[in-house]
Design a protein around this nucleic acid. Structure first.
Lengths: 201, 201, 201, 201
DNA sequence: CATGAATGAGACTTCATTCAT
DNA sequence: TATGAATGAAGTCTCATTCAT
């Protein structure tokens, strides 16, 4: 008789953690909340993870590496810089669309949490900024973007603008429906790139 | 003999709290750290403040109300919208220039800390976003800005872009000298407004 | 010009303490509550009293010495034992009638508070029990009361019975009007003495 | 090899708490004192009980419910009212005999602590008074007790008399040996009932 | 006499982590 | 793997008391 496929406890715990972190925040929740949400015993969390922190680290790394890969891949494409930035913005927004809880957790607990996980993962976070900066820099070199703007700064505000949008969605400050996502992406890219592009007068 | 001017203990404690919060983060520091930094006894913090939280609230409100007032005042001026946004960006960046520790604390512990003080102060934070949105909206009405962009979204990314810059300075991701501040302000306004302004083709 | 009669601050504070202790209990109130109630400054309480405890001690001793004096005086009267006990019961109940807050405080915080003031004032409390026991003992010697009952035990339950009545009034378990006081005194004396008196069969 | 019978930690902690509360008083002892006395770690107290208060509540309820059950059971018996009251007095005195520490704690910290646990448990305490009052009231209806005495008042002083005896034992005011318990019970019942019973002249 | 700012010891409670089964 | 009892460090807040003016 075939054995039932083994339940992936590790996955089960990670998924539960996302829900709990999103609902209560990392610090406000106890390890037992995660275990309860996952429907497993208290100590099992420690069987699969070294600590509560490591659960968060795992969640972040898992997702963030996808973003880094996406930026890298986009950068290699043979398309105009505006489309590259559009693809990056799209990827980030789609990440939220696809799993809002996870993105909420990553933004709230990591990328905007400068005193805790934000510090730990600074190198990885910076790699994303650098990736965007490279796109801008290359665009300047090719003459597509005006070259009197520091690419690293531009990268900051491009990313900051998008993250602020996600934050606003997360906290219900602006409507978050399918249409809003599409319009927002189009608008932020249009505006920011509109400002970055070289004027052809 | 003239009496020595009375020391403002309350101020002394608030100022110490800024330094300690900036250095260690709100959660990582103990009330005794604040007292030590202020050079006063433990209990005195509780003589002037109801709780550790209230110290933070006080710091935030004190500073944020200045920002809200500034936005309101700027909006009333009879100047082009781009200059209005430039003034707002300038005020925020100057706030950092003037007291980097305080701005670090406010950004890290409040405006980007959605699960703690960010939630408590959401209404006040939102008032700033709304103030910026109004500037954009009025600019659209007057024909200065293109009107196919949602002012509330534009407000988000304008503010998000600036806050990201501040974060980057706070964490040493980009150089933070006098020149950098000026250039950054000019660039972000130039770029974002450049994208927002109506094209006169 | 005649000086205004000096306010008796000490008295003012003691009276305020009675109200505050009655309302909140000794441990639940702070020294500042007493000062506020008395309308004086915080530190003044410490000008007149060595400590918060001493305020309570003062209140207790002031009142309890009256009870001790009353028992002694009653015992000296040339009246039947039942009337002596009636006079004692009457004095205690009248004390409550006259100043319910003070009696509430004394009972709740001292005579029934075996772990705090009850221990400190045990000697004085015991003197009251002894006084009652002496009345019983003398009555047994004169043949008025049956002599097969230990006077010290009888004293305990006579006093215990009355104190329980006061407690019940204090906490609203039984109605506390003028009529109730009179009836209760008559009944408790009638019953307890009825049981103590020698049967003349 | 047979597993050792599991230690009932909860019981262990409750028993330790009785000893510590009896020795030092509820407020004067720290949770760590309980843990030390029980020989367990600090946090384990909080594993089994929500708070220090709850430990006390548990102790009280556990014991008081036995008293309530006993009163109810006694009342149902087909015996003369004097024997009923005798049984109730006997139960209370036996409770002390059986576990003096526990009864000390219950009396000192609950039934006579009107400002703390006494208030919380007033309803349960009152149920005992009511049970005794019912015995008196029924006795009056059957003609066994004189009917010019309020049963609720009689209940107060019956209970008050017994509790005062226990207090006196607890604090060493009167000798507490086996003989004393028996004599005291007989005497208090004899006297109080003697006073309550209808005279057959 | 009077004020109230200043002091600091002390206790409860939380919760991440460990470990015996 | 899986369980959950057991551990204990750490931090906030209270409040009686002191003291300078």
């Amino acid at each position: 008789m075939a054995k039932a496929p083994p339940v992936d406890r590790r996955r089960q715990i990670l998924d539960a953690a996302v829900r709990v972190f999103a609902r209560q925040g990392f610090h406000a929740c106890r390890v037992s909340d995660i275990a309860d949400e996952a429907g497993v015993a208290y100590g099992l969390v420690y069987h699969y993870f070294k600590s509560k922190d490591q659960v968060m680290n795992e969640l972040f790394t898992e997702r963030w590496s996808l973003l880094l890969a996406a930026i890298e891949e986009v950068d290699k494409r043979d398309i105009p810089p505006r489309e590259k930035l559009d693809a990056v913005a799209g990827f980030i927004i789609d990440s939220y669309r696809h799993d809002p809880d996870l993105m909420k957790v990553i933004i709230v607990e990591v990328t905007r949490a400068a005193n805790s996980f934000g510090r730990t993962h600074m190198p990885e976070i910076k790699r994303a900024y650098d990736g965007i900066a490279k796109i801008v820099s290359d665009a300047q070199a090719s003459g597509a973007f005006r070259d009197d703007i520091d690419p690293e700064l531009a990268s900051m505000w491009f990313y900051g603008a998008i993250e602020q949008l996600l934050s606003a969605w997360v906290f219900g400050l602006i409507p978050a429906d399918e249409d809003a996502f599409e319009r927002a992406r189009a608008m932020v890219v249009e505006t920011v790139c509109g400002g970055l592009e070289a004027r052809r007068d």
